[in-house]
């Protein structure tokens, strides 16, 4: 695997692709909220689809679906599965 693949964020993933959460960026409140919703380290996430204009994203975490705006998704660092 190249470095490029190891270091991307949730909003870089194409529709249907899976990844594991590596870490969360952003302010404390947002990180806590994301972690509570299940976006914690090593969780498996999948981008299900995007809204017609490309944002927000529908993301699957442990079988629960969330609508996540692109700039929030950018704060979720992932490693492609």
């Amino acid at each position: 695997m190249t470095k490029l693949h190891d270091n991307c964020n949730l909003s870089d993933l194409g529709n249907g692709s899976e990844a594991d959460v590596v870490a969360l960026d952003g302010d404390q409140d947002l990180r806590t909220r994301l972690a509570e919703l299940g976006f914690c380290a090593s969780a498996r996430v999948r981008v299900v689809r995007r809204a017609p204009l490309g944002c927000p994203l529908e993301v699957d975490v442990d079988g629960t679906r969330f609508s996540v705006r692109a700039e929030v998704a950018q704060g979720v660092r992932v490693r492609r599965a």
């Binding site: 409140d29 909220r33 994301l34 919703l37 629960t64 969330f66 609508s67 929030v72």
Partner: peptide
């Protein structure tokens, strides 16, 4: 306020 309207669960 807070994290804003960024995340919504789609049940």
């Amino acid at each position: 306020s807070g994290v804003g309207p960024g995340i919504l669960e789609m049940a």
